[in-house]
Design a protein around this nucleic acid. Sequence first.
DNA 1: GAGGGGTTTGGGAACGTTCTTAAGAACGTT
DNA 2: AACGTTCTTAAGAACGTTCCCAAACCCCTC
Lengths: 350, 350
Amino acid sequence: MAETMKSGSTHEPKKPGPQSNLQLVAAKAGVSVSSVSRVLNGGSASEELARKVRDAAAELGYVPHASARSMRTGRTDQITLAVADVGNPVYVQMMRTVTGIVAKAGYRLVVSSTGSDPQAQIDLVTSLNRGYADGLLMSPLRITEDLIEAMRSSRLPIVVIGTLPADVALDNVRADSATGIGLAVEHLVAQGRRRIALVNGPVDTVPGSARLAGYLAAVERFGLPTSSELQVTATAFTYRAGRKATAALLGQASPDAIIGANDLLGVAALKELAAAGARVPDDVAVVGMDDTDAAELATPSLTSVDLGSAKRAKAAAKLLIRRIAEPDAPVSRIVIPPALSVRESTGGPA
Amino acid sequence: MAETMKSGSTHEPKKPGPQSNLQLVAAKAGVSVSSVSRVLNGGSASEELARKVRDAAAELGYVPHASARSMRTGRTDQITLAVADVGNPVYVQMMRTVTGIVAKAGYRLVVSSTGSDPQAQIDLVTSLNRGYADGLLMSPLRITEDLIEAMRSSRLPIVVIGTLPADVALDNVRADSATGIGLAVEHLVAQGRRRIALVNGPVDTVPGSARLAGYLAAVERFGLPTSSELQVTATAFTYRAGRKATAALLGQASPDAIIGANDLLGVAALKELAAAGARVPDDVAVVGMDDTDAAELATPSLTSVDLGSAKRAKAAAKLLIRRIAEPDAPVSRIVIPPALSVRESTGGPA
DNA sequence: GAGGGGTTTGGGAACGTTCTTAAGAACGTT
DNA sequence: AACGTTCTTAAGAACGTTCCCAAACCCCTC
């Protein structure tokens, strides 16, 4: 499985000497270190000097040393993105968006996968004080008092993607799950469904509790049955957990529609229904949430509540970049309105 | 959509003063800066001194400054991972694996999405010389001479995930697509399939050319028809491109099996076949490659060639970490053997 | 009590950059 | 010819850390 070969057999000069620095460039150009710095950072200089410096820098292949520069300037040109699980499609979507935006603004992206453990998130926030990044984008799955306190007392700007208690004065960008679920229920009701079930994720998480509340509100608003047999909770927002939870649901109730609290749970419901011999959407309609690629790829394709994950990520990234530039700007809270993407699983177009 | 509120209305002290440093800790503890550094880095010290230092550090909430430390030590505790598209499931899988390994080894992960543009990859490699990371993991989609030259002359260690020309002396971890496709073809032949089609991605990419070569070899080995109508090329390794390519394929040939060059193309084939009214696997069997989550979530679930993306990522990360520690270790090349995950799309268990 | 070995502590240089301050040059005005 | 103004360049401090080296101390032995 592993074959090893000697190095250096094919070619010769590996390292182009040690990292060249301002001093070497200055020596080569016959000018002072400060002049080199000034020229390279766009300060004023004579034609003559600028030419000498640029030639010398090019010849030596000079590139500024990141740590040294950031020690002096206090900026690192890095932004950290912290998510619970880099594998979850909704975070993938956010990451894809964020990557583009921060890169365009000249930042590198540090990705941190914290899991759902609140302590790991707190550790992350305090580790920010090491100053390895200029700001933090985080989407916490579980929010505790300690985490909020840690975020509050952070020296660096933090933008939260997700809902926060009303009295926390931190920039944040949130979805409106309640309205989103309302759209799903309304759509299902319009199709004559009445026994609408919810396959939720853990209710002690931010999205889990929001989605349960939204579901209950919508079901009540439309005068639908709210029997607790129609509500099940998966142990995580994953496909596997969703299969189990849906199986349990089908064992205890006969819904004519199922809402999955995210697309993975929705797809799990689809697959579990198929395994049980139920037809979708004829017997049971299914709706997912987040409108990720997984919804489009599913068979039948999954109607999904678009909670604007890409828009949220984009807004959050821009907010963070702005706050880094203006630390004293007023706190903003942005709410991204939801939309419904109707697909085959609720009778939409093939 | 955006509601803005004044900051600082709810609570008071935001910043806990400027970042505390060794000097402040030393002053508070009544000892020298060097002693503080020594104690905090586990050097020898008296009980008394150690206690004073630790108390002072805790009281001030001291955390070492990342840039300053790395300027002095030459290490950044960061590793960069460069992939073409953070959204592609196979890269997601790699990223998930890599995240865990580098975090456990005490590194932060910088993620860079280069696209398939060779120049962007070259720029990335040269930017490494800024010294913002200790090493680079990269999985290049297209490899040019210039890119190889850039990687060769890099001051920092690079581990390539993917196939490289034989004479390039860089650590790398590769899949064996040829054998992998062989497994798929063998499996299909055993089920009596003979008109086996390939829905490939761009052939000027590393995986594209490898998979085409593997397909041709396998088809020839089993004495199957090699008509060019059975080979189509999608414009990218994406779902949408796969739908189009499969539609074209079905318009020009009547395969009894389709191999997608990755899972997205495989799922696209599934969906396109369903849209065309063909039954899977009864009329046409389908196989994907990479064995990502998308294969399991598909309906019918997709048989897929496991090219060991998680194992490759793991091996590559460990290799890089080792090379950072021992820069002069011999170059290693690791080949991860493929395996076949049989699922419903070729008649496997439901 | 002086000398010597070993341990513990502190002083200070160095990493590569930016930026403030000041020195020097060029030039026009009185 | 002396002086002020403006522009260009250089010197050197500072960022916070680590680590080499020397100073200080302790304890033991002679």
